[in-house]
Design a protein around this nucleic acid. Sequence first.
DNA 1: ATAGGGTTAG
Length: 319
Amino acid sequence: MSRRFVPVDRRILEQNIKARYHAGDIGTEDALHLFDELLQCAGSSSIRAINYLVTTVGRDSPALGVSLFNRVASANVAPNSMTYTILVDCCCRAGRLDLGFAAMGHIIKMGFAADAIVTFSHLLKAICAEKKTSYAMDIVLRIMPMFNCVPDNFSYNILFKGLCNERRSQEALELIHMMVQHGGSCQPNVVSYNTVVDGMLKEGEVDKAYTLFSEMLRQGISPDVVTCTSIISGMCKVHAMDKAEEVLQQMLDRRILPDAATYNCLIHGYYLLGHCEKVDRIFKEMSRNGVQPNIVTYNIQIIFARAEGAQKLGKYLIL
DNA sequence: ATAGGGTTAG
């Protein structure tokens, strides 16, 4: 049989793929061509380069990613655990959770479960997206340990987000307390607290959110820009603009730099109250601090300009 | 290859 590449060419191709992947220099079309080219000469050393290509294609089109996996499986190249992780992610994002479970079952059967922490994360996220967070909790608390796969902050934080999306932030709080009291190796981090504080604020539980924020500080976890923006957002939603400004000031004192999301909350809050002069002040402060308005900032402006009539729309759009 | 915050619409 004729082969287009001798092993040296194959190695060059693999290195080329790796370099271009890391440079963010491969589009989906390129990746598909490179995949065809590589598969013709692939050997067992090619799996890493193949993973880069399947990742690239799968990001754009998960269903296509799954079909590439099938071609890898029928060529003479053994998938590794990373390949399976990419496969599970593609299945989940293609809306085929059933295939994701099947792939996970295969991983468990091969005895790779203990190293499959990231793979589990993809699956957990998809389960939570279907509002079946209770099931995801069972996987984290019971099934993963059964396979010696120790849940990490990613596993737990996916649960927190899922519970909050189902308006079950109280249960998320109890899980945080359980982790702290149990004193295990995985303790809630800044993302865990941010997620649950935000969930409580969105359920209108301002006092509970504040209590949890205090607990976070007591645990020695430093708030960051996301923590503060969540709290500012919560304050703006109940029109407590003075409180929101207070938190902003505390941020600056603590040298936590506000970003566009932070200012967007305040701009939106003042617009809702019709305080246009305050909006102007926030804009000036924003540019003084070197924060660029983003697409959301402009959307807020356009929505409110539209409410004020076509004349002002013209004024706002001339930047 | 995996986790958190900001706008709208119907």
